[in-house]
Design a protein around this nucleic acid. Structure first.
Lengths: 174, 174
DNA sequence: CTTTAACCGACCCCGTTGGTAGGATTTCCT
DNA sequence: AGGAAATCCTACCAACGGGGTCGGTTAAAG
């Protein structure tokens, strides 16, 4: 699996925060219950998001978390990067932030040879990076709003309108 | 890391086979030495490629492996699939070959809600799939031929020509 | 002064990775 | 016939990371 549960939980958490009105803190407990995730584990996840400056927090009663920026200005590669660390197809692509994207296997001094696989992994990485960079948190929030059919609908007078037609969830722009 | 060493080794192995004239078997031992990889482990790797019908083999002395098809007709998603199994961004995307790409986390009976993350993972998967499908083994073989500066140059009379200029390794088409 | 919450660090179970070891079988060469 | 050179096959193992849990500390609100 490419992404661990940290990414899954973390993205869901961000989406939840994106659904809330900004500047108003949401407690982890509320999110954990809404998404049915273990609270203690979510703490670790959100800590990463905080370290990356994607969310802010307030302690104490009525404290909680909120987005540090509007969801339109948060791209998903920032989020995933914060949660998973650098995402690379192969070991060789880490350990070095700048140039020299050589395969670590060729670190033997003599052979000035490139990995035959380098071309492939570069393309894969490019494909992932592009899909992550071109998706904003706001899109996911919108998506979640369209899909959510009011999970356990609000306890109100039950009229007859039972809109069953699913509204054609288009998933474009890879 | 997205891909394990199985993918790395397996792709290198395929590239090595692609460099050889077809229909003539190459022994694993030769490949292991050329690429400096553990022979016993390579056996496991190549077994997967064989099961997937990507290579063929002959046993006994002067036996070995060769590509089952010309390198131009082998796309790298076949190779990677054989080595790593289905490649998916998240658990939810497996367990089901056809439709119903729902997140497993929503398998709880009541909530008819989609994963908020679904859109994101779909795009990532699309990005990977495209880069893997549009790269053929032949391209990697070509790439490796261009790059390889005769690792440990053949023991011949040493003339003065020390061509140092690296020939602009372009890595296009992600 | 209690409740609610963020924050912090240690621990732990378990499956996968990246191999190794040892053999069995098949084929070629002399 | 008898090696030698290969593929093939199964079992085993150490180490690491993933996916949490537990317990406690600090800070703010009422």
């Amino acid at each position: 699996m490419i992404f661990s549960s940290k990414a899954e939980y973390g993205v869901r958490l961000m989406v939840e925060l994106g659904r809330q009105s900004p500047e108003q803190p949401t407690s982890l407990k509320a999110i954990a219950e809404a998404e049915r995730l273990p609270l203690a584990y979510l703490e670790q996840v959100v800590a990463r998001l905080k370290r990356a400056g994607l969310v802010m927090s307030a302690r104490g009663a009525h404290g909680g978390y909120w987005l540090a920026r509007p969801a339109e200005q948060i791209t998903m590669d920032e989020v995933v990067q914060a949660l998973e660390g650098a995402i690379a197809p192969m070991e060789c692509f880490l350990t070095d932030t700048t140039e020299r994207v050589l395969c670590s296997h060729t670190h033997e001094p003599d052979t000035g040879q490139h990995c035959a696989t380098k071309l492939l992994w570069m393309r894969v990485q490019g494909g992932i990076a592009r899909s992550l960079q071109t998706t904003t948190l706001a899109e996911l929030v919108d998506f979640s709003r369209r899909e959510s059919v009011a999970p356990v609908p609000p306890v109100v007078a039950r009229s007859g309108a039972a809109s069953a037609a699913s509204p054609a969830a288009a998933v474009p722009a890879g």
